[in-house]
Design a protein around this nucleic acid. Structure first.
Length: 402
DNA sequence: TCTGGGGTCCTAGGACCC
DNA sequence: TCTGGGGTCCTAGGACCC
């Protein structure tokens, strides 16, 4: 989806179209103030001058999405809002409305599922779709189906998206960036040299700042240069797994299937404080936040129907360094009390000599509540065979060749 | 002007087992 | 004198993604 969070806000406030708008910053208080002050008029009649300005922001938030007009000033995703305010003070700042985002996310995915049922969820604003078995999916290299999806989403939601069609996920993801916004791009295997090799290595999904820096140190800036390197050379410099993956990626090779269903690995909640908190002086406040995070995670587990047996915490200090601690239980849990208690034990293993800026609580090693109840109803064997009269064990001595 | 929140996957060492 | 070769699970950190 194109500038998804911002585009959703523009549906509500069409008077902001074409203006630099930035979404982010957490709290909805300013937005509520805006709405309260204009309770008597329709949203689309609220004067532009009355919207909150990025220049007035004072918190620790980051940009989630910027409209294309705002991007002209050099602001972009993940940038701190205070920094963005210097670059584009006149921009309008709106908080994220998660409920609304989820509604539109569900809506555009349902539209796609109706047309092409093999869809992989990649977060609120992105999916992979397998065109292979969709009737007409091969027409014009996929362009006809891409256009149909685009038009239907626009018609039913008012939102635009960009589509990349290619033989695999790696190339499709890159292709989707080619004609943003509201664009379609088709990439065939034969286009590798002309369309992919001139791109910066950073454009490969999976090469981040660190890997890119290392590649640059080795004199590799674009994918074409990466593709000239031998497999063994890449493995020598990046290890077996990453080396082989880089080699494949540079040659446009990617065998990953479109995965339509997956189970979560972990569920967590974290929060950055408005100001850094002192582990002793602000103990009471930290304790209250800690408890609330545990309650939120417990609630998430309950709502989603999971239990977990690894409970962990995350701390970020005032110097932005992070640590994690976790502890695995013998049995699966999901209640706030237990999570809070085990998380407290984890916290004791961290030396607290600095102020904290973030605290998080996480539950992993998840199991579906339904399966868990299933297993719990079966009495475990060790409870049936309590104190056996005799135990047979053929190989009771540690053998040399076992 | 410091840098959100919720995730996944990988690596690497140690414990422990056969 | 120097000590295998699997395997799994747990823990901590870090890169990366949306």
């Amino acid at each position: 989806m194109d500038a998804f969070f911002a585009s959703v806000e523009l549906l509500r406030y069409p008077q902001l179209k074409g203006l630099p708008v930035v979404i982010g910053g957490g709290k909805r208080s300013e937005d509520n103030a805006l709405l309260q002050a204009h309770a008597d008029i329709p949203l689309k009649r609220i004067p532009i001058a009355d919207f909150p300005r990025l220049a007035d922001y004072t918190g620790r938030g980051v940009i989630t999405t910027a409209t294309y007009a705002a991007r002209q000033s050099g602001v972009g995703s993940a940038m701190g809002l205070m920094k963005a305010a210097k670059l584009c003070p006149e921009a309008i700042l709106l908080p994220v409305d998660f409920a609304e985002i989820r509604r539109y996310s569900r809506a555009f995915k349902d539209i796609i599922l109706d047309i092409a049922p093999v869809m992989e969820d990649r977060g609120v604003d992105e999916v992979f779709i397998d065109f292979t078995e969709v009737p007409g999916g091969q027409r014009e290299g996929g362009r006809v189906l891409a256009r149909l999806i685009q038009k239907t989403i626009l018609l039913e939601t008012g939102l635009t998206c960009s589509v990349g069609v290619a033989p695999n996920k790696l190339l499709a993801k890159m292709a989707s960036e080619f004609n943003k916004p509201n664009g379609i791009a088709i990439v065939f295997d034969a286009d590798l040299q002309s369309k992919i090799w001139p791109l910066a290595c950073r454009k490969i999904n999976g090469i981040g700042p660190k890997a890119d820096e290392k590649l640059q140190r080795l004199g590799i800036k674009i994918i074409g240069e990466l593709a000239q390197k031998e497999l063994d050379w890449l493995i020598d410099h990046f290890g077996q797994k990453t080396g082989a993956w880089l080699f494949d990626a540079a040659h446009g090779q990617d065998q990953r299937p479109v995965v339509t269903e997956s189970e979560p690995v972990s569920i967590s909640r974290e929060t950055t404080f408005e100001r850094d908190l002192h582990p002793v002086k602000d103990k009471a406040e930290l304790g209250a936040i800690f408890t609330r995070l545990a309650e939120q995670v417990a609630d998430d587990l309950r709502r989603k129907g999971y239990v977990g047996k690894t409970i962990g915490i995350k701390l970020r200090f005032d110097d932005f360094k992070s640590v994690t601690r976790d502890q695995t239980q013998d049995s699966y849990v999901s209640d706030a009390k237990t999570i809070r208690q085990v998380a407290g034990q984890c916290l004791k293993r961290v030396p607290l000599t600095q102020r904290l800026r973030l605290l998080g609580v996480r539950v992993a090693s998840l199991q579906r509540l339904s399966e868990h109840e299933n297993n719990a109803s079966k009495v475990p064997l060790e409870h049936i065979n309590k104190a056996p009269e005799a135990t047979s064990c053929i190989a009771s001595e540690p053998g040399l060749f076992d």
